Simulated assay, not measured.
Amino acid sequence: MVIHTWGFPQTPVIKPPRPVYVTKVACSTDESGNCNTNSRFINGQILKIYYGKGTVTATTTATVTFEGESIDSYNINTGSAHRYPRVDTIAEPFVVSGLINIAVTGGQASKTFDVYVFSR
Rank of each mutant, 00 (worst) to 15 (best):
P17R: 14
G68I: 06
C35K: 00
V104R: 01
G98F: 09
V87H: 12
V56D: 07
G52E: 13
V96R: 07
E67P: 02
V2K: 12
T5E: 13
T59I: 08
V104C: 03
D88C: 03
L99N: 04
G33T: 04
V87G: 00
L47C: 08
T63P: 03
S39C: 06
D30I: 01
A81L: 09
F118C: 02
G7P: 03
I3K: 15
P17G: 08
A26Y: 08
V20Q: 08
G79D: 03
S73K: 11
T55F: 01
V115K: 03
V20H: 06
T61P: 01
W6H: 13
M1L: 09
Q108N: 06
N77G: 02
T60L: 13
V25P: 01
T23F: 06
N34K: 11
E69S: 15
I49F: 06
I3S: 14
E92A: 11
T63L: 07
G79T: 08
S70H: 00
S119C: 03
N101T: 15
K48D: 07
S73T: 15
Y50H: 11
T112C: 09
R18F: 08
R120C: 12
H4Q: 13
D30V: 02
R86H: 12
D30T: 05
G33S: 04
T5S: 07
D30N: 15
K53Q: 15
T61E: 12
R40V: 05
Y116G: 00
I76E: 09
S73Y: 01
S39L: 03
S70L: 14
S110Q: 13
D114Y: 09
D114P: 05
T63C: 05
A109L: 03
V25G: 00
F8M: 09
Q45C: 14
W6L: 13
A58I: 02
G106N: 04
G52Y: 11
I90Y: 04
I42T: 05
S73W: 02
T23H: 10
P9R: 05
Q45G: 07
K15R: 13
